[in-house]
Amino acid sequence: MTEPKKPSRLVDVLLILMMVLPLAAAVVLHVLFTPQEEGVAIHGAWVYYSADPDADLSQVISTGFIITESLINSWLVMISITGLALFLTHGLKEKATTVRQHVAEWIVENVEKLIRGNMGDFHVRPFAPFVCAVLALSVFSSLMSLLGVFTPTSDLSIIAGWALLVFIVITGYKACNGPRVYVRTFTSDGPVVAVLNVIGEFSTPVSMAFRHYGNVMSGAVIGVLVTSFLSGLSSSLLGAFGEAVPLLRIGIPAVLSVYFDLFSGAIQAYIFAMLTMLYVGGGFSEDDWIRRHSAKPKQTAGQTA
């Protein structure tokens, strides 16, 4: 009886490949494009493709377009997360029997609980996918550093893109209140404070972007500094042998990586999602909406349901 509904093995294998292959592709591209160099060095994302290879980076930003490693990696992470989501939801049944359905239900329930606690019931339905997507993208992007490739989250342009997206969502929800209410949120305290309010509004995406980027990138920079220090130390302590085989470099930087890559990346993803929820929830309050639209109770009831 369950035979026709059983999820097919072939689709599972294809979805697992969809998860794994982009990550493998990221590693292969990183190895292919990394130039031969001495030791460890602090560097930005490698440029995979440039419309004008001879141009200076500052000229390229203004005129041409370049494809960097962080851009490619963030698209690969997105493909991988899509594969993971499809894999977890493949062959769903009404009553959860498989591990993956339990995992999928656990994720959905926890994200909905988080949003219900921070934004209220009203926002659960529209925002659960968005917040979960932001969380997953941020966590998995930060975890890319475990593969040794350039983390998309340590590139300011990637995070700035996310922060801009969140800013558009916040502004859109604030504008939902109506233009009069939106303007009044800035000008209610007088003209001098209004200027500060406008500046504060635009500092929201900047601070969100800098916070996440600064945390992840400072971890990467400190990791490189400690690694190069340890290799120098081992070559000065152990002589020629230490120079050939940097013994002290093995293992010790991994302790830092546990904090900077795993803990800090997860915390920053959580904070990014949390700030998104708080800003949107603060910009659009359910009670105000119901109070202003109390003349149209049917529409409000339909949206809250």
Binding site: F210, R211, G214, N215, S218, I267, Y270, I271
Partner: peptide, 17 residues
């Protein structure tokens, strides 16, 4: 506390950038 610490860190991260 972790949430508040991360937000208090912002000015330090501006300086870092």
């Amino acid at each position: 506390m972790v949430m508040g610490c991360a937000i208090a860190e912002t000015t330090g991260l501006y300086a870092l950038v």
